[in-house]
Computed example of a mutant assay.
Amino acid sequence: MILHIIRTLGVKGGVGYAYEYAGTTFEQMTMEERMTVCNMSIEGGARCGYINPDQVTYEYLKGRDFAPKGEDWNKAVEWWNSMRSDADAVYDDILTFDAAEIAPTVTWGITPGQGIAVNEAIPIPDSLPESERAIAEEAYRYMQLIPGAPIQGTKVDVCFIGSCTNGRLTDLREAAQFAQGKRVAQGVKAFVVPGSERVKKDAEAEGLDKIFVEAGFEWREPGCSMCLAMNPDKLQGDQISASSSNRNFKGRQGSATGRTLLMSPAMVVAAAVNGKVSDVRQLL
């Protein structure tokens, strides 16, 4: 969803502003799913992104190590409720999306704004606004992709699930759901990196690590890993990575010629299983 929003508004769409996400889709999201969306707001140029606190927020926070306790909790909830946008709040702009029409989205270029639905073709220069053509031409050259070609079917070398964007427990649960009973394609390096020690511990308690290992993924220690080419987790040469991280800039994953395709954790599993960019809905 957030890749689609950034694709629509552009990487500079939020410059000087904050993004407020609202509507029935966001109301139904878990807190961790909301974190993913808000995390990516900066990639759209916004100063920050937020979703108004609600019962989902409070249920997520209550009982956590550093959450207020007792009467302090009641006071905190009252204060948080006071921070919600009023029904008559005035916004600089409002854009409405129909979530049912948003297909799994993949980036094809060198900015998070260069994204398309998995069943779409890489845009040709003439279809883009003139202001976007120069960066598109640079992306074609760097990514070695052909304008007008479908993104689906693009071969991948490395599949990475993790990062602060998509390394939380619910992310791993979602990915494991699609990995269970499947097998990573021959020649593909695939690994899962929990976002924290607690996420790793909780995931292992649920047996998620076993599901990934049985499917051919490496189960790694928590950290940033390939999101920014930390430690040995780097692309080699012009390898293509299917990555659940938040940035696809040139050289971001450790190789000056390495190529990154951003997508959701579930989409990374689909790419790993098929050895190429694939529509995860086909694994349902």
Rank of each mutant, 00 (worst) to 15 (best):
I42G: 12
A117E: 09
G187C: 15
T96F: 08
I102W: 07
L235D: 12
G275Y: 02
T24K: 11
A46F: 03
Q180T: 07
R7S: 15
Q152A: 11
P150H: 13
S243T: 07
Q282W: 00
E206C: 03
E20A: 06
A99G: 13
T8G: 04
A99Y: 09
L169R: 03
M35A: 09
H4I: 14
G254Q: 08
M143W: 10
A266Q: 01
Q253M: 09
R7N: 12
R252P: 01
V118K: 01
V273I: 08
K12D: 15
V77D: 03
Q55E: 11
K182I: 03
G207Y: 04
K189E: 10
I211A: 01
G258E: 04
A270K: 00
R34G: 05
A100Q: 08
S41D: 06
T24R: 07
M263L: 10
R168G: 12
D233H: 06
A103Y: 13
G115W: 00
V188R: 02
E137R: 15
L172S: 07
E120D: 15
S196G: 11
E27D: 14
N274K: 03
I110Q: 03
G207D: 14
Q114C: 12
P150D: 15
Y17G: 07
I116N: 00
A117H: 13
A271W: 01
R64C: 04
D209T: 02
L261T: 12
F178Y: 15
A271S: 14
A190C: 07
G14I: 04
E59A: 09
I122P: 04
L3N: 08
K276I: 08
T154G: 06
A18H: 11
A229Q: 06
G207R: 09
D202E: 15
N39P: 08
D72L: 12
V156Y: 00
V158C: 02
I6L: 04
E130N: 11
S82I: 10
M40C: 14
K250Y: 02
D93S: 10
W73A: 05
N39S: 14
D171T: 03
K189A: 13
Q152C: 05
Y142D: 14
V280H: 09
W108T: 07
G16P: 11
I102L: 09
V273F: 06
E132V: 07
L169A: 12
M35E: 10
A121V: 12
R220M: 13
V280Q: 00
R133D: 11
G44W: 02
A22R: 01
H4W: 03
W219F: 04
Y21E: 08
V11S: 14
D126V: 06
P129G: 15
A256N: 06
G223R: 00
N166A: 15
W73R: 08
Q239C: 09
E101G: 01
I51A: 02
C38F: 01
V56M: 10
